[in-house]
Simulated assay, not measured.
Amino acid sequence: MSFEWTLFSVIAKSATLDRNPTYYRILGGCVAGGGASGSWGDGRARVLWRPSDSGTPAPCWSRSIYAPAGTVMQADVEELSIGFNMNIPPPYRLKAGTYRGSITYRIGPGGDFDFGNDVSNLSGDSLTVNFELDVQHAFMFEFPPGSDRAVLEPRNGWQAWLAGGKAPQRLYRDLPFRVWSTGPFKVYKLCQYDTGAKCAIKNDGGEQVPVDVAMSLPAGVQHRGQAVERLPLPSGRLAALQFEAAMPTLNRPGQLHFEVGRNDVQAMLQHPGSTYTGQVTVVFDAEL
């Protein structure tokens, strides 16, 4: 986070407004941040200054446009207010949590805030500004009913093969979901039957084949700055993929992809009448 002072507002009272040193000409490294106002009845002036360059501020001072040169006038500062800018990374790129910090400025001659010569009755010699930012993200994945069961089939079902056609090139199932996400998260998979990087499905005879598990996400979510399109999911929390929010994503479509490749389909067809099953758990983890 970067933090900078941008405005200074003063209410100062002197014997007469035309001798008030804050009213009305601004000199040095500041310009008017808005109109100045004054009360002729009680000598009170209200001014707003803006540093010309808040990154490298230069000394600022004022001079009455009415008082003759050499005039000395005491003014009591009744109120000093300060405006500021806070520049933070986009919240949707931050992990959820509470962020805290502080910065201390020196007040007095030669300090960060130097109010000039003959200034008295300062309330202290330092100012500490404390920051607290609470980041809370929306995070939800919604699957339609029945998504707990993915039946892997050829593109147009089994009828063509049962009628004497060619063996299917692949078996697959795409499961749609809707996603709400305004921050980063991780995804990984857990397998009932593990074949290294892939999960497997197994029949009653103990024969098993690997299943590719991949995911596609809407454009608002990226992995390493790239769109997420059929990205293979790793196994285990330590290998989890981290996804970043390119923009807040609300109620957008995504898909999980399950697929058995051609060579493994051929192996399955050597065991007609058997059923291959296995569990795959896909974990969406917002606790980074």
Rank of each mutant, 00 (worst) to 15 (best):
S274P: 03
A138C: 04
G34H: 00
N251A: 14
D76R: 10
Q74P: 04
D114N: 04
W49V: 00
P90M: 03
G205I: 13
G124T: 12
T249Y: 11
K166A: 15
M215S: 03
L171N: 12
A240N: 08
I11V: 03
E79I: 01
R50P: 11
A96S: 11
N85Q: 10
Q208N: 09
E132V: 13
I11Q: 05
T281K: 12
Q222V: 07
E132G: 12
P57K: 08
G55P: 01
G43F: 01
P59L: 01
L233P: 08
L133E: 04
R237S: 15
G273V: 06
F177S: 08
L133S: 02
P210F: 12
A69G: 08
F177Y: 10
R155C: 09
H137P: 06
G157K: 11
N203G: 03
A163C: 13
G273W: 09
I65Y: 13
F3I: 06
F115E: 01
S9K: 09
P218M: 02
T71I: 13
R50S: 13
G146Q: 01
K166V: 13
P176N: 10
G55E: 09
G97T: 00
R93G: 12
G157Y: 10
P59K: 02
L162T: 07
R19E: 15
S64H: 06
L217F: 03
V213L: 10
S216L: 09
G29T: 04
G205H: 11
A69Y: 10
R252C: 05
W40T: 07
Q136N: 12
G225E: 07
R173D: 05
T249I: 13
L231H: 14
L17R: 00
H137K: 07
T275Y: 13
Q242E: 10
Y92I: 00
G196R: 07
I107F: 08
M268F: 09
S62V: 12
D174K: 05
P210C: 11
R262V: 02
T249L: 12
P89H: 01
D212Y: 14
F258Q: 15
Y99K: 03
G225Q: 06
V209P: 04
